[in-house]
Amino acid sequence: METLYAITVGTLTACSVYLILRARSFPIVIGLTMLSYAVNLFLFSSGRLVIDQVPIIGAGEPYTDPLPQALVLTAIVIGFAMTAYSIILAVRVRGEFGSDEVNEPNYQAEQEDKR
């Protein structure tokens, strides 16, 4: 199970990194969101994989480690704030420049000159 979990986190990270390296803003936003999922899963793994030991007193000992859960919960909400901000930023850039290219406009022009 640990191997499967690790492979999943790795795959998720790889896919999100690839998306983040794209030149358009929307794939980057998707990549960022996915990367935050991967990071959350990674942070969560610091409590190790434990099945059916919900950290609720009275549910029956033993309990899994509640601390990573609390941290990840915070991370999810903050991740949402960041995602939202980057989305609006992308829309704003599109509204201001009429393009969803993330590179500097000058850079694009330079590249075309070289060709």
Binding site: A6, G10, L12, V17, Y18, L21, F42, S45
Partner: peptide
């Protein structure tokens, strides 16, 4: 290549 390496490294650390 970059994505693959990063993914591999993160996966290894997780494991």
């Amino acid at each position: 290549l970059i994505a693959g390496f990063v993914g591999g490294v993160v996966g290894s650390i997780t494991f």
